[in-house]
Simulated scan of single mutants.
Amino acid sequence: MAERLTRAQQQEATRARLLDAAETRFGDRGIHQTSLDDIAASAGLTKGAIYANFGSKNDLIAAILERKLSTDEPHPPSRSLAAWVGRLSDSYESNVDRAEIRRFAMAFVELWLYGMRNESARAPLTQWLQTVRDAHAKEATALAGDDLPLPADQLATLLLALDIGVGLQRWLDPQAVPAEVYTTGVRAILGRERP
């Protein structure tokens, strides 16, 4: 006999379905071309379910980005800068071609364009980018202190740009842009054998 979900579990499942549907629809059709009715229909729910969980499209966007941060796999702290470079590279190369990563990337490009065109929608995107940069800067500083090739915030910006840029090029032209380009770039920025 199937176990009944609690109210909180049902609400979380509904939110997840709505976020999956929104992320897919935004990536496939664009934010402006996707209505809340489209998202609800894709999730097999009503528009009321969206309003019960999110106030607007902008709230959906913020929740998609927040979910991405919270679902990234936790990892133990690296013991050295070289180990961190290895972990970043291994993670990128093994995950860049996963369908859910590509789906998020397609939605992310739409969210990026939407934020550039719509100042009121920019905050969740800039906050998400800053959170990722801050995590990179914190880890780099913890591992190398002042012995970084450039200030930690600039290093973090370059690592994020490399992640996004290589991914976008790879998804369009995988033969010309192997995932290893990311690893080569990270090693060029950080150095392979730094303590």
Rank of each mutant, 00 (worst) to 15 (best):
A2F: 02
R4G: 01
R7Y: 04
Q9S: 09
Q11W: 02
E12I: 00
A13D: 04
T14M: 10
R17H: 11
D20C: 09
D20Y: 06
R25W: 03
F26T: 04
I31C: 03
S35D: 03
D37R: 15
G44C: 06
T46N: 14
G48H: 09
N53R: 04
G55R: 14
G55T: 11
K57N: 03
I61E: 08
A63E: 10
L65H: 07
K68F: 08
K68P: 00
L69C: 00
S70M: 12
E73A: 15
P76Q: 12
R79D: 12
R79I: 08
L81I: 10
A83W: 06
W84H: 15
G86C: 09
G86I: 04
R87K: 08
S91H: 14
A99Q: 09
E100A: 07
E100Q: 12
A107D: 06
F108S: 02
W112A: 05
G115T: 00
S120V: 04
D134K: 07
D134E: 07
D134P: 00
A144M: 11
D146G: 14
D146F: 01
P149T: 13
P149M: 11
P149R: 12
L159Q: 10
L168K: 06
Q169S: 08
L172P: 00
A179Y: 06
G185Q: 11
L190V: 05
L190R: 09
G191L: 05
R194T: 02
R194F: 01
P195R: 10
